[in-house]
Design a protein around this nucleic acid. Structure first.
Lengths: 190, 190
DNA sequence: GTCTATACGGTGATAGAC
DNA sequence: GTCTATCACCGTATAGAC
């Protein structure tokens, strides 16, 4: 509950989102967070992995809540997903393509090299997936179809973020928004 | 054209695909490649960035060719894309989730922090995109629609690779294969 | 709890012999 | 072309004072 610990986690989230895990140094976290320098290993005795794990958990649940909240703003699931992805496009652009997909880089870096962080990322993505799934179920999709579509939606969004960040343009994400909207519109008319 | 230089590039591709850019050390590249140690800065005077740039270019054109070749095996674009993505799923699983999406990690790591590598990744992704685009055009899609769909297809695949690698399961990619197949099937019936 | 100082390893990069 | 030796630096992690 201490503010210093929380500051460390928060800035670790931001730095790892834009740079990845390996490029983010502990010194950088301490400096940028303004947290007391000597307290890093007091709050996180297990070092960098423990900090990253906390950052992943934090970014994961925060993002999951944001997905749920955004999807709740529109009844129509097609329009809700499309609007959500459009908002991401804007966010990625506004950040100078430094932000968006808070866990993607860490997830890729650690998928096969760090089981602890891999499991943390996995848990977070499952939360994202569940958020889409529940929206679809609430919109009348069968549980089975909702689960399948949630995976596909999440895939398209994550991939769109990659392309938008490397192209330095929100267009790929806007394309994903349009296609997912059309797909869900057609699927819900059955 | 020398074999040593080529070996360095090739193993740099593999290591950066599974670990990312920052986690891959030059010593590791030299050791794993078996290339003569002292020749690293002889072939790549500009150091790590130059090696990574060459690795990205190599992986990029190799992958683009593989996409084109795979899509050419089936006439029906829906089935061709679906089969291609299914093959990726198998490849990701067979590699122990260390491989797949050769440029994704580097692309995310460097999108906003290293313009040189960012541009290299961008060029590579545009090749991938063009490969899908041309298949769709050859299948009767309008140029406009083909370009839009290519971005979406590439996004879904890249995102599916992320999920499959972090979940340690080929299922997300197989889901992407099925949904893209259905989408393209419906789109081509217009 | 927080500080400063430091140990220790690995990194990218360079120099100079052969 | 390739080798070995070495540089300066930065990374994580630790020790011990306050």
């Amino acid at each position: 509950m201490t503010a210093a610990r929380d500051q460390i986690i928060e800035t670790a989230c931001g730095l790892m989102e834009s740079q990845g895990f390996h490029a983010t140094g502990l010194n950088q976290i301490v400096k940028e967070s303004g947290a007391p320098k000597g307290s890093l290993y007091y709050y996180f005795p297990q070092g960098k992995d423990e900090i990253a794990e906390a950052a992943i958990a934090r970014a994961g649940s925060a993002t999951a809540q944001r997905i749920t909240a955004s999807l709740a703003e529109l009844d129509d699931p097609a329009k809700a997903v499309s609007a959500f992805v459009g908002a991401i496009a804007h966010h990625v652009e506004a950040s100078g393509f430094r932000s968006g997909g808070p866990l993607m880089t860490i997830a890729m870096e650690t998928a096969a090299t760090n089981t602890r962080l891999n499991l943390a990322c996995r848990a977070a993505y499952q939360q994202f997936q569940a958020a889409f799934e529940q929206k679809l179920i609430a919109s009348g999709f069968s549980a089975e179809r909702a689960a399948a579509l949630a995976v596909f939606i999440l895939s398209a969004i994550e991939g769109g973020i990659i392309l938008s960040r490397t192209y330095h343009s929100g267009d790929p994400l806007r394309r994903v928004a349009a296609e997912l909207g059309a797909l869900l519109h057609a699927a819900s008319r059955r």
